[in-house]
């Protein structure tokens, strides 16, 4: 979980962050499941446009020097 701490862009520690995140939605259950569904749909959509063979594609992206 060390990685999780790294990526929390707030001044709070993990526990406080979880509390705060839970406190934001006004009707928590409905909103968070709608939000999760939204994110899932988005990730599905992005899966459909990602270049094939990620490893090879990223490896092939080699640039010459620039400014």
């Amino acid at each position: 979980m060390a990685g999780q701490e790294q990526i929390n862009p707030s001044s709070r520690n993990e526990e406080q962050a979880e509390e705060a995140d839970a406190a934001i939605p006004t009707s928590p259950a409905a909103q968070s499941s709608a939000a999760t569904q939204g994110v899932d749909d988005l990730l599905d959509e992005i899966d459909g446009v990602l270049e094939k063979n990620a490893e090879e594609f990223v490896k092939g992206f080699v640039q010459k020097g620039g400014q």
Binding site: V58, F61, V62, Q63, K64, G65, G66, Q67
Partner: peptide, 16 residues
């Protein structure tokens, strides 16, 4: 074309 600044293989190019 990519509007980024590195190939992640030691090369960078700028946006000034």
């Amino acid at each position: 074309l990519y509007k980024n600044n590195t190939d992640n293989k030691a090369v960078s190019y700028g946006s000034h």
